[in-house]
Computed example of a mutant assay.
Amino acid sequence: MGRLRSVDVCSGAGGLALGLERAGFDPVVLLDNKSVACETLQRNRPAWNVLEMDLLDFDPVEHPESYDVDLLSAGLPRVKSSATAQRVETGIERRLLGATVLLAHAVQPRALLIENVPGLVDGPEFDEVRDYIQKELEHLGYGFHWFIVNAADFGVPQDREQGVLVALKNRFFSAFRPPKPTVARHITAGEALHASMSERGWTGAVAWAAQADRVAPTLVGGSDKRGGADLGPTGTKKTWARMGINGGALSNEVPGPNGVQESDTSPSGLKKITVPQTAILQSFPNDWVFAGKKTAQYRQIGHASPPPVGEALGKSIAEALDS
């Protein structure tokens, strides 16, 4: 089967698009409304057609290359489930979800992939959203697969559940199978980060890696409206602490030979991880460059879909389309 064509919206740092590229999909258009994310995409893939644009303003008529594509993919901002955001029209996250559905209505790709919160799959608080999506698309000849994947099952050293919708034109629907785990054993955070923790000769790296004997908690990119980068809410920080990690902030460097991190002025004896190490926990390749300063880089990484998940989903979609 030859290469397939896709449109990727809310592309962020490109985690989903990179995974889909590995699965055989070449994006004809990628768009994001953040300049730093677009810079990241263009630094890593200069040949990609990256548009700095809000999805709500995207008109496929002005970008005819977006028609007749095999896949429309969207790693959308996490949809809220609070009582104040119950309607599809309420909140920017739900408006972007609605805009993705309307774009699919306009360009009618052979397959649609939306990745979001697990609750979107079966949570009663999202019943209205699921009904909206299906009513908008089922009369166009789409069938729907809703399921949840955990990134850890695909070799990502992180406990990261993702809700997934794969909608396919009816002639491909029955051939689709959700991807099966690609690893028999989860990779622990200690295994994933040991090499980087040892880069400056820290003699305690082996003992630290043995303590970090589980997958990392879900990385949380945080909001653009709040302060610097940290690894999540209080409960998550406690989990990090049990792994020997200070989740309150990120370091500028890994520990030196005596375990000192020069940029860490906190009284904690726990180690802080660096931005490149968070990219390892998301399974980005080592040569993937992130634009912006530390906090902007971390937010791109924390909000991304891990590339191995996108690759597994893409392969399942490609196999169905090949049928």
Rank of each mutant, 00 (worst) to 15 (best):
G2F: 11
R3H: 13
G15W: 04
L18G: 05
L20I: 06
L20S: 09
E21L: 15
G24F: 10
D26Q: 14
V29T: 06
A37S: 13
W48N: 04
N49M: 08
M53D: 01
L55H: 03
E62C: 11
L71V: 09
S73Y: 03
L76W: 01
P77W: 03
K80Y: 09
A85V: 02
A85F: 10
R94K: 15
H105R: 15
P109F: 05
E115T: 09
E115D: 12
V121R: 00
V121C: 07
V121I: 08
D131E: 14
E138L: 01
G141P: 06
Y142N: 07
G143Q: 00
H145C: 06
H145I: 05
H145W: 12
F154A: 04
G155P: 07
V156C: 09
V156W: 01
D159T: 12
V166A: 09
L168V: 01
K180E: 14
T182Y: 02
A189R: 01
H194C: 08
E199K: 15
A205C: 08
G221V: 05
G227Q: 11
D230I: 02
L231Q: 05
T234A: 15
T239E: 13
G244F: 04
S251L: 08
E262T: 14
G269M: 11
L270G: 07
K271Q: 14
P276Q: 10
A279V: 11
P285W: 08
N286M: 13
Q297P: 13
A304N: 09
S305V: 15
S305A: 12
P306M: 01
P306C: 01
P307R: 07
P308Q: 01
P308D: 02
G314Q: 05
L321W: 05
D322G: 15
